[in-house]
């Protein structure tokens, strides 16, 4: 964790140092471009960060914890999803598996960024650490012309995380000022976040289906096994341990589906 924090702070510090060392015009060029590029993320991250800070406060976690988590974990959906497990003392192993499952999509962001990030030198550790959904959406098409790519990547990643941490601090402060009874139900923002991501994913999948890039089964399989597998596990295993069962069902289902699909192609 200490490594992560230092890996994160280093690029910011070195950027500031460079800026002050007579190279002002060039560095402010990439910084300004990165800042402008990060503005759409700012709106979303500050708001979600506020919702996160408030949700943590409403669950009884102090400001310091919210901010620490936004700095060293830095993954929106996991940070929301881990509030309840932390409060209810989920077993560590289940918790680790839950983290891996929620974050699994990040594997594929890395796959896109292999080449540019491998050339990013000193910035590489932080760039990998800070490759969140939103940052990925900004960097996946490459850096703009005329700026140092690795510096632009680093600055975009740094700004994005800055917006996230800023939102978290604001939310934590707001959450400690606003009377708790006004906040009843605020935790639905986390449910809404997942519903929105799921809607977004489904709309993309439906678009793929409409242009004939995949079958209807491809569109429905993943959300259905996620939904029914989890619901079934909840009914059978109860609230304490159902996630573990749900994850197992999803993975087994995926494996079976993959094998059937491959066999279908071979035939």
């Amino acid at each position: 964790m200490v490594f992560l924090v230092s890996a994160m702070i280093y690029p910011c510090v070195s950027q500031t140092l460079r800026k002050g060392s007579g190279n002002g015009l060039k560095s402010s060029g990439y910084l300004r471009k990165a800042f402008v590029a990060s503005l759409p993320v700012m709106a979303g991250y500050v708001f979600l960060g506020i919702a996160y800070g408030i949700a943590m406060q409403a669950r009884g976690f102090r400001t310091g914890w919210s901010v620490l988590i936004s700095i060293v974990v830095y993954g929106g959906s996991l940070q929301f999803a881990m509030i309840d497990p932390m409060a209810t003392l989920m077993p560590f192993l289940t918790f680790a598996l839950l983290c891996l499952l929620i974050q699994a999509r990040h594997l594929f962001y890395g796959l896109t960024m292999l080449e540019p990030y491998n050339r990013a030198g000193i910035y590489k550790p932080y760039l990998i650490f800070a490759l969140s959904d939103e940052t990925y959406s900004l960097v996946c098409n490459g850096a703009p012309q005329g700026v140092s790519a690795e510096k632009w990547f680093a600055a975009v990643s740094g700004f994005d995380q800055l917006w996230w941490v800023t939102g978290t601090v604001l939310g934590a402060v707001l959450g400690s000022v606003i009377p708790m009874q006004w906040l009843t139900g605020i935790d639905f923002s986390m449910t809404a976040l997942f519903i929105v991501i799921m809607t977004e994913q489904t709309m993309d999948a439906v678009k793929m289906w409409k242009v004939g890039n995949c079958t209807l089964t491809d569109v429905l399989f993943a959300p259905l096994i996620g939904f029914l597998g989890t619901l079934g596990s909840l009914l059978l295993a109860g609230k304490e341990s159902f996630l573990l069962f749900a994850m197992a069902i999803i993975l087994v289902g995926f494996f079976v589906r993959y094998r059937t699909e491959e066999r279908g192609k071979a035939a």
Partner: peptide, 18 residues
């Protein structure tokens, strides 16, 4: 293949969890 499809299953799971 898993990477392309798992996120959608994971989000459905999280909605039920919530």
């Amino acid at each position: 293949w898993t990477g392309k499809n798992l996120p959608r299953a994971a989000m459905a799971m999280l909605v039920v969890y919530c």
